[in-house]
Design a protein around this nucleic acid. Structure first.
Length: 552
RNA sequence: UGGCUCGUGGUGUAAUGGUAACACAGAGGUUUUUGGUGCCUUUAUUCAAGGUUCGAGUCCUUGCGAGCCAACCA
């Protein structure tokens, strides 16, 4: 996007708030944070949040902290920490600090004692079932139990015993003392510390009590002096609590703002569901090219720029949304069109013998790598007597508008000659198995003086000088666009045919492709070299097909 | 039958009381040695009903609809 366009683009509601805060002198600079929990891989919904948080900081001259929200040791793991860092970097963003909520466990513990000392927190020994019952429902107020009357001294003593491992898991919790009749369920004396005898990926076995999200997140924001703490809409009811803790603890007043999370058609955007797809082997892993994860999109052949452009386009608002996949596809086509080399690959071969080329004769054809990029140069593609073309590029009974090859018809072989079809050879079942053609003299690409007019141009590959490759063709993971609103098990909607593997024949230049190299297979689509490739087998993932406006 | 958030083309996002704009998708045309790309054209009485106003997508009232909230998850 040009800076002019950026200037003209209207502000989203968070930018408006920031500009007002800067203008009023409330803040001199801003600090945001991206706060993933390391319990899964990042997906494109996180990309939206990353682009927002880092984008805001870039735009207004502030910074962004990467902070791992690691307060639940039983679900979290360093594998996820590493993948998250890789993904954020790959997307093109740099954080000013790498922090962990667990860095603040000591402070958070002190905050809890402070609340106890202010008479604003108490140890509750009620069972979780009973506690749920006492909590009431959205339409009925909750009730306090006897434990809330405990003295400050007793609360302090028992809370310390909890910390020291004197009480078994699940036997008691620390709750904030707020309002059991609040219409906001989160204000009904929320649990803020629980006992977990679990090994933490960073603090090891130092703690056996861990703070809950509401005590940890806002306080971490405050400790870091985050000015604008941006999260998704499901945290709206938490804002009241967020502000309550900051007020009662008398600490730096970070402010929380909420925007609508990204929903994309034909996929799911919940870590729980994505994890299920991985663990139950519906996909090959978190980076399966069908997954909406950053690593999956990367392996699929998406570029960081295409994802950033997409996130920029979908905007930031508070309304629930379901983005059309075609928008994502538009941005990757847009980028790949400009940067990828064109190559020829035949995936469903039909043998064509060009009868007026002598056997053993090989002609080198020079073909531009990318008509969209003058700097991209050219390459040599060998052309000889026997070639393969795509089966669908020949039709015996072709409609008038079909301008590829037909009996007695002509077609241009991209970068080579015009050929004319003389004979159609079929097998016993009547299927076309070979074409005999002749090439038109003086019709070579770039030096055509033949005067022969032909509208069609097709891709081809030499039958002797080619390299077999495996193509992995992906389709959408789910059969329904709106997976979220399906009432039953989301797995019912899985598209069983989301992966198709075919063998294809590529021009020789593809032998030199390396990991993540991106190509346009002419007239077919964009492909990327997959990491499963080895010396014996070259594997390409189809990123996305080319637009196809041809209809019979 | 509580509270909160939100309703603008098929999908998103704008319009900050003054001609409903932009992108994607769809349709049509044009260019093209990729049926790709590019270029052009085209698609809305803003959830409903009242009200305020010279003027309402925007403000007010009342409905209606959607999402979220009752984990020792984040």
């Amino acid at each position: 996007m040009s800076s002019k366009e950026e200037k003209e683009r209207s502000l989203n509601f968070i930018e408006e708030i920031i500009e007002a805060d800067l203008a009023s002198g409330k803040h001199d600079s801003i600090l945001t944070r991206f706060p993933p929990e390391p319990n899964g891989y990042l997906h494109i919904g996180h990309a939206k949040s990353i682009c927002l948080n880092f984008g805001l900081a870039n735009k207004y001259g502030g910074g962004t902290n990467l902070r791992f929200d690691d307060t639940n040791p039983v679900t979290e793991d360093t594998e996820y920490v590493d993948s998250i860092k890789d993904d954020v970097k790959w997307l093109g963003f740099n954080w000013v600090n790498e922090f962990y909520a667990s860095d603040y466990f000591d402070t958070l513990y002190e905050y809890a004692e402070k609340l106890i000392n202010k008479g604003l927190a108490y140890v509750d020994e009620t069972s979780s079932e009973e506690m749920a019952e006492q909590k009431g429902t959205p339409t009925e107020p909750g009730k306090r139990n006897k434990f809330c009357e405990r003295s400050i001294e007793d609360n302090l003593r028992i809370f310390r015993e909890m910390r020291d491992g004197k009480h078994p898991e699940g036997s008691m919790v620390l709750r904030a003392k707020i309002d059991m009749t609040s219409s906001n369920m989160l204000m009904r004396d929320p649990i803020i510390y629980r006992i977990k005898f679990a090994h933490h990926h960073r603090t090891g076995d130092k703690w056996c009590i861990y703070p809950m999200y509401d005590l940890a997140h806002g306080q971490s924001d405050s400790i870091e002096h985050i000015t604008h703490s941006v999260c998704t809409l499901e945290f709206v009811p938490h804002r009241e609590l967020y502000n309550w803790f900051i007020e009662k603890l008398e600490i730096f007043p970070s402010k929380q703002y909420e925007f609508a999370r990204l929903n994309l058609g034909y996929t799911v955007m919940s870590k729980r569901k994505l994890k299920q797809l991985v663990e139950e082997n519906y996909v090959s892993g978190w980076d399966d090219p069908r997954m909406p994860t950053i690593s999956g999109l990367r392996r699929r052949g998406y570029t960081p720029k295409s994802i950033r452009d997409f996130c920029d386009r979908i905007g930031i608002a508070k309304r629930d949304n379901l983005i059309d996949v075609s928008l994502l596809e538009f941005f990757i086509r847009d980028h790949l069109n400009k940067i990828s080399s064109r190559v020829m690959v035949v995936s469903d071969p039909l043998k064509v013998t060009i009868t007026n080329i002598p056997e053993g004769h090989v002609e080198n054809c020079e073909i531009d790598n990318n008509p969209e990029d003058e700097e991209s140069g050219s390459r040599i593609v060998p052309f000889d007597r026997v070639i393969y073309i795509e089966k669908e590029d020949f039709m015996e009974d072709a409609p008038k508008k079909y301008f590829r090859l037909k009996p007695d018809g002509v077609v241009r072989l991209k970068g080579a000659y015009i050929i004319q079809c003389d004979e159609v050879i079929k097998d016993a079942s009547g299927e076309v198995i070979e074409l005999k053609c002749h090439y038109i003299e003086n019709s070579k690409s770039g030096q055509d003086t033949s005067g022969v007019k032909c509208k069609g141009v097709i891709h081809w590959v030499s039958a002797t000088h080619n390299v077999p490759v495996e193509l992995r063709l992906y389709d959408r993971l789910f059969k329904e666009e709106d997976v979220n609103s399906y009432e039953g098990d989301f797995k019912d909607l899985i598209n069983e045919n989301s992966l198709q593997i075919v063998t294809a024949y590529a021009e020789p230049s593809l032998k030199d492709a390396t990991l993540e190299d991106k190509f346009q297979f002419m007239r077919q689509g964009y492909y990327v070299l997959d990491k499963d490739s080895n010396e014996d087998k070259i594997i390409f993932n189809r990123t996305v097909g080319l637009r196809d406006s041809w209809k019979k």
